[in-house]
Design a protein around this nucleic acid. Structure first.
Length: 565
RNA sequence: UGGGGAUUGGUGUAACGGUAGCACGACUGACUCUGGAUCAGUUAGUGAAAGUUCGAAUCUUUCAUCCCCAGCCA
């Protein structure tokens, strides 16, 4: 028997090993810990798929339970908002994951964290420091030089206890004092040079309101929150590797449940930026319409763009996991989107750049209902009907007066198939005063009804899409390209700015598109394949009078590709 | 310059001392009522140098390169 089990990545291998050796008593508990200060993006999706995926995958081997907690890392009220909490939950659910009742907040643990801080003060492991932020920074030393001990490093336990209690009571202004861990000012790891545990912030918190005016720092809050929740595997990205010694130090000093941190590589995409700070800049400076602008890499934008969650999940599983820097080509994401949509999206005909086509030998006023397959990949998707008449629109690109070799579409004297319609032969071209082709005139062959091959065995090279002029619906179509023209948006010349790499053509709006009448009832979010063009989905801006579509992704187009070269 | 990580085709990811494989991309061709899909095929890789070994991507040493760290952000 051939073994079909695919190799486990290093994290899953570790989990499997921990389960085998009974390290955590048969439990696998992970957590996804977003900070509610922005929207989730594709990079988070990788972490979500990992953290929620692992408990699912190891359920059978984890006799004592497997789950992923959703925990908001809400320790900085100056940047965090309820709006983001709501958006994050919506996006995780949309991606296809559920945390059940295990929704937690670091702020739920503020009291416990405070008590533990007192415990550390009593143990002589933490002290109140009156240095200013600037002074702390200056005395921290540099990469190559050790730091200088704070003049308050050896305050008595009593004084520290008193000061810390008064910090909590609100007796001191912001920035006047902090609580610091007493570790090692000489450590080559900057994180261990007496890191700040608490800072004073007279700021209202979205959840605790004004109950607190001191807030714990990430390093002091995260590991302890993991420990409180008995997280067995705390997975985070590579840049936290340097923080692991500190993560372990607090847990050890406190003698609490030993959660363990393991780091994996962050996901980067070409032509894309996945830094929350920079995404915020794009939104605030108006380079995009908002967090859900379909050009953004946020999950809400990908949803609006029409990316199916299943495609994002497959992508995240597909990119793999390691400790190397990972920059995935955008084409790989698009591959998964096409793969999913090819299976699931109904086909429909739409003309983006309409050119009038008159079938001269077709009776005026006559309408034939032609049968069309909704999805050739899925018989269950059924069939629909498309009206055919004398006056049609075809895609301007599908006609050339003087076609080059290998052009299989319509041209003077040429015959093509109108998909699900009839075979037509171009007999005439009508031009305007400027010489632009404004109409092509054709005759049709009644023996090719439905687009079928004629009995005489004649062949045709091309099949093109069309809509009936009288029946077509008007639509606005938004065509997207990458937000940045450079593979690496951060690759800028001296004195340049990453914003210089914004792609001026990332959005092209087509106003005069014509789509087949079956789309009249399409609802926001519905995804279709416009035959021969790509996948499109109905934008929330869409109204019955004025349909609006977003292009999710184009179809692969070997003709266009050949033209470029 | 200190510390922490990492180097396998264009991009990712396997191989854990024994045939360098898979996916995406690119390129051919077949087929097709979507120049889509599908099918078949081609292309291209172990950062460098020494060493250990019958045998090295894998072990050792040296070198090189890249990423992260000096927030009272996470």
């Amino acid at each position: 028997m051939e073994s079909t089990t695919k190799p486990l990545d290093f994290i899953r291998a570790m989990v499997a090993d921990d389960l085998r050796t009974g390290r955590h008593g048969g439990r696998v508990i992970t957590r996804f810990p977003p900070e509610p200060n922005g929207y989730l993006h594709i990079g988070h999706a990788k972490s979500i798929c990992l953290n929620f995926g692992i408990p699912q995958e190891f359920k059978d081997q984890a006799a004592a339970g497997a789950r992923c907690n959703l925990r908001f890392d809400d320790t900085n009220p100056t940047t965090e908002e309820q709006e983001y909490i709501d958006a994050i939950k919506r996006d995780i659910r949309w991606l296809g994951f559920d945390w059940g009742e295990h929704e937690y907040y670091a702020s739920d643990y503020f009291e416990q964290l405070y008590e533990w801080a007192i415990q550390l003060i009593k143990a002589g492991k933490a002290y109140v420091c009156d240095l200013s932020a600037e002074e702390i920074s200056r005395t921290r030393g540099t990469l190559t030089q050790p730091g200088m001990p704070s003049p308050h490093r050896d305050r008595s336990v009593e004084e520290n206890l008193d000061l810390f209690a008064r910090m909590r009571k609100g007796e001191f202004p912001d920035g006047s004092r902090v609580l610091r861990a007493k570790i090692d000012m000489n450590s080559p790891n900057l994180n261990l040079r007496d890191p700040v545990m608490y800072r004073i912030l007279h700021e209202e918190h979205p959840r605790t309101g004004t109950a607190w005016c001191i807030y714990p720092m990430y390093d002091y809050a995260h590991g302890q929150s993991d420990s409180i929740e008995k997280i067995t595997h705390s997975l985070c990205t590579l840049e936290f590797e340097d923080h692991r010694p500190l993560y372990d130090w607090f847990i050890e000093q406190l003698g609490i449940f030993p959660s363990r941190q393991t780091e994996f590589n962050r996901l980067n995409l070409t032509h894309t930026i996945v830094t929350k700070r920079k995404l915020r800049t794009l939104v605030e400076k108006g380079h995009v319409r908002g967090w859900d602008d379909p050009r953004m890499p946020t999950l809400s934008a990908l949803r609006r763009r029409g990316y199916p969650p299943a495609a994002i999940r497959a992508f995240c599983e597909g990119v793999g996991l390691s400790k190397r820097e990972q920059t995935i080509e955008i084409a790989r994401l698009e591959f998964h989107v096409r793969e999913e949509l090819n299976r699931t999206a109904d086909r429909v005909m739409a003309v983006l750049d309409p050119l009038r086509l008159v079938v001269t030998n077709f009776s005026e006023g006559q309408v034939e209902q032609m049968e069309a397959v909704n999805n050739p990949e899925d018989a269950a998707a059924g069939k629909r009907t498309v009206p055919f008449s004398k006056d049609l629109y075809i895609e301007r690109d599908d006609f050339m007066e003087n076609p080059p070799a290998k052009f299989f579409r319509l041209a003077p004297g040429r015959e093509v198939r109108l998909r699900y319609g009839y075979w037509v032969t171009c007999t005439d071209v009508v031009k305007d005063a400027a010489g632009n082709v404004v109409e092509v005139r054709c005759t049709y062959d009644p023996l090719t009804r439905g687009g079928d091959n004629p009995p005489d065995g004649r062949k045709v090279k091309g099949t093109i899409h069309w809509v009936s002029a009288e029946h077509a619906l008007d639509a606005e179509v938004r065509l997207y390209d990458t937000l940045f023209s450079k593979e690496d948006p951060n690759d800028v010349p001296e004195g340049g700015d990453w914003l210089d790499n914004l792609n001026p053509d990332s959005l092209r709006i087509v106003k005069g598109a014509k789509v087949e009448p079956s789309l009249a009832t399409a609802r926001a979010g519905a995804t279709f394949q416009f035959e021969r063009l790509g996948y499109f989905c109905v934008d929330p801006d869409s109204e019955s009078r004025r349909l609006v579509f977003n292009r999710t992704v184009t179809l692969k187009d070997s003709w266009a590709k050949g033209q470029k070269g």
